[in-house]
Amino acid sequence: MKVIYNCYGSAHSSVLAAGIHVGLLPEDRVPTFGEITALPHYDQTETEEIGTIYYFGEDELGSQVYILGMKSSPKVVKRAIFSMLEEFDIDRTELVLVDSLPYVNNMTRIGGFLSRGLGLVKIGRPLTVYGLQKSYSRFVNLVQGVKKRLGYIY
């Protein structure tokens, strides 16, 4: 099974969700600033990289986890992915697309814009982390829901 966590730019919410999914972040407590910023790709994706699928790791049952930024066109990107699977005769049930953007609060949005959009990393990155910490339980619930959907026991 392949799981792709997607968001606007594959720099914050998809990275956080993927980090929880593969066990790089805890499910039983809010991670520290350092734990979040140490995640691969965290607050690093450049605008020209949006739309690139990045392998993030493997979970405890062997599902491969990826991240993907879809900018403002998630419907178009999803349609392209699923039509490509169909064209190459790949079973679409082997792929789970998970939108992590709805779990982001305004603090993370503002921080992401400042950091990735304006290049004000020193101001924006701490705001993204703070925002994600404040909504962390929602991300844990998201990941647990995905794992339940995949047939994991929860």
Rank of each mutant, 00 (worst) to 15 (best):
Ser14Cys: 03
Leu16Asn: 05
Ala17Gly: 03
Ala18Thr: 01
Gly23Phe: 02
Pro26Cys: 09
Asp28Ile: 02
Val30Gly: 08
Pro31Asn: 02
Pro31Met: 04
Glu35Lys: 05
Thr37Pro: 09
Thr37His: 06
Thr37Asp: 03
His41Cys: 10
His41Ala: 08
Asp43Thr: 07
Gln44Ser: 14
Thr45Phe: 01
Glu49Leu: 09
Glu49Cys: 06
Glu49His: 06
Ile50His: 07
Tyr54Phe: 15
Glu58Tyr: 05
Glu60Ile: 07
Glu60Asp: 12
Leu61His: 14
Gly62Phe: 07
Ser63His: 15
Gln64Val: 04
Val65Ala: 04
Gly69Asp: 08
Lys75Leu: 13
Val76Cys: 08
Val77Leu: 04
Ala80Leu: 15
Phe82Asn: 10
Phe82Ala: 01
Glu86Trp: 11
Glu87Gln: 11
Ile90Thr: 03
Asp91Cys: 10
Thr93Arg: 15
Leu95Asp: 01
Val96Trp: 10
Leu97His: 07
Leu97Glu: 09
Val98Cys: 05
Val98Pro: 03
Tyr103Gln: 10
Thr108Pro: 10
Thr108His: 09
Ile110Gln: 12
Arg116Thr: 13
Gly117Leu: 08
Leu120Glu: 10
Val121Gly: 06
Val121Trp: 14
Ile123Pro: 05
Ile123Gln: 13
Gly124Asn: 12
Pro126His: 02
Val129Pro: 05
Val129Asp: 02
Tyr130Phe: 15
Lys134Asn: 12
Phe139Cys: 02
Val140Tyr: 03
Lys147Ala: 06
Lys147His: 06
Lys148Arg: 15
Leu150Pro: 05
Gly151Glu: 07
Gly151Tyr: 09
